[in-house]
Nucleic acid binder design. Structure first.
Lengths: 134, 134
DNA sequence: TTATATGCAAATTGTTTGCCTAGGC
DNA sequence: GCCTAGGCAAACAATTTGCATATAA
């Protein structure tokens, strides 16, 4: 039996976590959710919340907002450009091709003028990671 | 004297950190830089690297790639949409207006087809944070 | 000389994991 | 009954901070 065929049980904690995240539009953090869930299941643990958020994400029920990655990275280039992050090795490369203005315009159309900047991160597998076993 | 007028000294550590980050295009993490800097200033400390990266970022000499934020956030909406993150309070709101396809297209033009997804995060101050003291 | 910067270590913060028990199917 | 999930606490990883000393200006 494949690892992905593991049976996903329908537990209280899991159901309540999903309900609570669906109740709000605030994009809660793990421990904001923990606080909410605790009102309904007082003995739930933070570990359970993290484990279930991970599982729900794997199953496409929710999404983890995960631009960024674990460690912060630094960039000597301060001009506008975009980033490609490899989902396997974590490497970041610059995307410097031309549609900068195009994206700029679309973002402006989307967000108005009340913003100070934006960050576009394209994700996928970099060439060297694409050539190894999945 | 304003806090921002603090005199920035020209120290060895600071200069070497900046040189090292400029020497590469790999968007190093703090401890990758620490390893590099250590080759030239063996007794440098990781704390110094972090402190200087922060200062260099404040001064616009480098940029911290900081989509994300410290804690991960979760989203019950799995359809494509974008996020606005308030730089003061950290709140995230969805940007769901229409130029989704426009941005999609521009990203495709930018990155080709070899990607699995992307994340657009617009940053600024949200209305309630805009109305309090800077 | 004096305020800024550093080294070092300890503290914090966010997240993950091991282990043993509970509970869904 | 078996195997996935949960609780709890300890382990981890990344980053920040306090404090005494060093150093640029």
């Amino acid at each position: 039996m494949d690892k992905k065929d593991k049976i996903i049980r329908n537990t209280d904690a899991r159901r309540v976590i999903l309900e609570e995240i669906r109740r709000v539009t605030s994009h809660p953090t793990a421990d904001e959710l923990y606080e909410q869930v605790r009102k309904r299941i007082p003995k739930v643990s933070l570990g359970t919340v993290y484990r279930n958020l991970e599982i729900l994400t794997q199953n496409g029920k929710i999404q983890k907002i995960e631009a960024g990655g674990v460690q912060k990275r630094f960039d000597a280039t301060t001009e506008k450009h975009y980033h490609f992050r490899c989902l396997r090795c974590g490497r970041i490369v610059d995307l410097t091709s031309n549609p900068v203005d195009e994206i700029d315009q679309a973002v402006r159309k989307l967000a108005g003028e009340g913003f100070s900047g934006y960050h576009l991160e394209v994700q996928g597998f970099c060439p060297s990671c694409r050539s190894v076993t999945p």
